[in-house]
Amino acid sequence: MSHFHLAQLNIAKAKDELTSIVMKGFVDRLNEINALADDSLGFVWRLQTEEGDATSFKIFDDPSLILNMSVWESIESLRNYVYKSVHVELIRGKNEWFHKMNTPHQVLWHVPVGHIPTVREGEARLLHLEEHGPTEHAFTFAKPYIK
């Protein structure tokens, strides 16, 4: 049994306010997609408010950035949720709601079992990935680091 879980942070730059018609297709699916994560094999934790989402959390002092952060038992469990579930439909539709980013928008890293990462921790990992590329400290699905 591993003494580590996998944390992930992803960000997206919204094309408009969450209350806009532009963002409606994304916002309308948030509860469904969050519930899917909560019920997925290997899911441990996700950043959320009392309302159950993370849209009010901010990162990099940019109000147009939406973030998602979660912890999973393994990279395989996260990969299954992201790419082999209904979640992939949101990935396919991302160009409707979000601007293309020229910097890394997702980072993965290991955390000790029981550790709940903070937004600032995720922000630092994403910056590390941008500055140094994939390492043991901050990596990607394409270039994972397995503990």
Rank of each mutant, 00 (worst) to 15 (best):
L30Y: 00
A7I: 03
R120G: 05
T19C: 12
E96Q: 12
E89G: 03
P104R: 09
F98T: 01
I116V: 13
T103I: 15
S56Q: 10
I116N: 06
N102H: 12
D28N: 05
F43L: 11
L78A: 02
E73I: 12
L129Q: 00
N102K: 13
V107F: 07
P112M: 14
T49A: 13
E96V: 14
L90S: 06
F43G: 01
A7C: 07
F57K: 13
F60N: 08
H5A: 11
E130M: 10
H132C: 11
W72L: 09
V22Q: 01
S70V: 01
S2N: 09
F26E: 01
V111H: 07
G114P: 03
E89H: 04
H105A: 14
I11W: 01
D38C: 06
K84I: 09
Y145N: 06
F141T: 03
E51L: 15
K58N: 09
Y81C: 10
L41Y: 08
V27F: 06
P144Y: 04
K94C: 03
I11Q: 03
V44K: 05
N34F: 08
D53H: 09
H5F: 10
N34A: 14
T140K: 13
V22K: 10
K100Q: 15
Y83I: 10
S56V: 15
D16G: 07
A7Q: 01
W97Y: 15
S85R: 07
R29N: 07
R125Q: 09
M23F: 07
T103E: 15
P112Q: 14
I66T: 07
I116E: 03
I66E: 00
T49M: 11
H5Y: 14
L108R: 00
Q48M: 11
G93P: 06
N95Y: 11
A54T: 03
L18N: 05
I146G: 03
H115T: 06
D53G: 02
F57Y: 08
G42A: 09
E32N: 12
E51W: 12
I116W: 05
G133T: 10
R46C: 09
I33G: 02
I59A: 05
R120F: 10
R46V: 06
N31A: 14
I21C: 14
G122V: 04
L41S: 07
Y83M: 13
E89N: 10
E121H: 10
D39K: 15
P104K: 08
I11E: 00
E121N: 09
K100I: 15
I11M: 06
E96L: 15
A14D: 00
N102R: 11
T55W: 11
M101T: 02
T135F: 08
A37S: 15
T19V: 13
K58D: 12
G52P: 04
F4E: 02
E51F: 12
T103R: 13
G114I: 05
Q106V: 14
E131T: 12
R29E: 02
P112T: 11
R46E: 04
L127K: 11
G122H: 02
V22T: 12
R125C: 04
N31W: 05
